[in-house]
């Protein structure tokens, strides 16, 4: 089901990973990585301004996917052009998620703005659980399938394949990242967001209403997350009420990898994480196939005969890489790749 599996080839020693597989994993990694990057922006913007890890962000992304899938499913038989249907799904998901991001901040986090740091953190975990169960109530425990309305064309490049959905995801993500960068670095309100992230009290002296800036970071992050959720769901063909958990955790890892609070870092971290994950998943089977190792004798050599294999870690270990990377970053460079300051607070 997962397109990531496309390049995972179990082979004998003589069929070691080749260029086309490498290229394929890079394409797959760029696709998931750009989704991670867009989701990571939501974590990093909020963290940058109020030093809160909004653990419910992954759930907001999930609800974006669920809302869009519901709309797309209900319009699937309407005879509208497929692109219009998908667009309608996105247009429903984005405002729904923005509203949810706003309410999360307003109802759950703002009252705890000056509470000890553990309180909002635990609240964030609580909100994540609540949203997950809300989605379970609304959409049930079965995954929603993306209706077959789009003719997903596949193009060959250099022996690898890239689908029109992958192209759309990569381009959309790049456009959103460029748009956000322009907003944050070039507009008045964007400068105010960065000023508030640096010092909320001094920004207040400039006339910046901190509440408005904080709410905006939640709303923008949620809006981006909604699109990311739709992209992620359409890539794998399903949306499920639990999908926000691992996606959110990976995007959070990406944000930490890039340096949490740093916008460029979230983008870099997301793409890198996607690549590491895809390449890791693509090659882990090869490298942990004992038949490739000189230890293959006895019953193992029988098993390895005729191109058999004995793989210790298969591509089902896909999810491990994000967390492995998170741990490595936290051990060796806690401030992340582009982070300048090691956060002094938990």
């Amino acid at each position: 089901m997962s397109p990531l599996d496309a390049g995972t080839v179990s082979s004998g020693f003589e069929r070691f990973p080749t260029m086309d597989i490498l290229l394929q994993q890079i394409i797959n990694g760029l696709t998931t990585g750009s989704v991670y990057a867009v989701v990571a922006l939501g974590y990093t913007m909020v963290y940058g301004v109020i030093q809160l890890i909004n653990f419910a962000h992954g759930e907001v992304v999930m609800i974006g996917a669920m809302v869009a899938f519901s709309v797309i499913t209900s319009l699937a038989g309407s005879g509208l052009p497929p692109l219009a249907i998908v667009l309608a799904g996105v247009m429903a998901a984005v405002p729904a998620c923005m509203l949810m991001g706003y309410l999360l901040e307003r109802v759950a986090y703002r009252p705890l703005r000056h509470a000890p740091r553990l309180a909002p953190l635990i609240t964030a975990i609580g909100m994540s659980i609540i949203l997950q169960h809300l989605a379970l109530l609304v959409w049930g425990r079965n995954p929603l399938a993306f209706p077959q309305i789009i003719d997903n064309q596949v193009f060959g490049i250099g022996g690898a394949a890239i689908s029109s959905v992958q192209i759309a995801i990569i381009l959309m993500s790049l456009a959103m990242m460029a748009g956000l960068s322009w907003f944050v670095y070039r507009t008045r309100f964007g400068i105010a967001i960065r000023a508030t992230a640096e010092n909320v009290h001094i920004a207040g002296l400039m006339g910046v209403n901190a509440n408005r800036v904080i709410a905006a970071t939640f709303v923008i992050g949620a809006g981006l997350g909604a699109v990311a959720g739709v992209m992620y769901g359409s890539y794998y063909g399903i949306a499920h009420y639990t999908m926000g958990f691992s996606l959110g955790l990976k995007a959070f890892s990406a944000a930490v990898l890039g340096g949490i609070g740093n916008i460029a870092g979230a983008m870099l971290g997301g793409i890198l994480l996607g690549l590491v994950e895809a390449l890791g998943t693509g090659y882990v089977g090869e490298f942990t196939d004992l038949c490739h190792w000189p230890v293959a004798h006895g019953w193992l050599s029988e098993r390895c005969a005729d191109g058999g294999n004995f793989v210790l870690f298969g591509s089902n270990y896909q999810d491990v890489f994000a967390f492995l990377m998170l741990i490595l970053v936290l051990v060796f460079r806690p401030s992340g790749l582009l982070g300048e300051r090691v956060s002094e607070r938990a």
Binding site: R188, I191, A192, R194, A195, E198, N199, H201, I202, A203, L205, M206, G207, V208
Partner: peptide, 18 residues
């Protein structure tokens, strides 16, 4: 209390934010 990560021009623009 200058914004250390903002440029000089951005700092000045923040002064006129309102």
């Amino acid at each position: 209390g200058v914004f250390a990560r903002l440029t000089v021009a951005e700092n000045l623009l923040m002064g006129a934010y309102h």
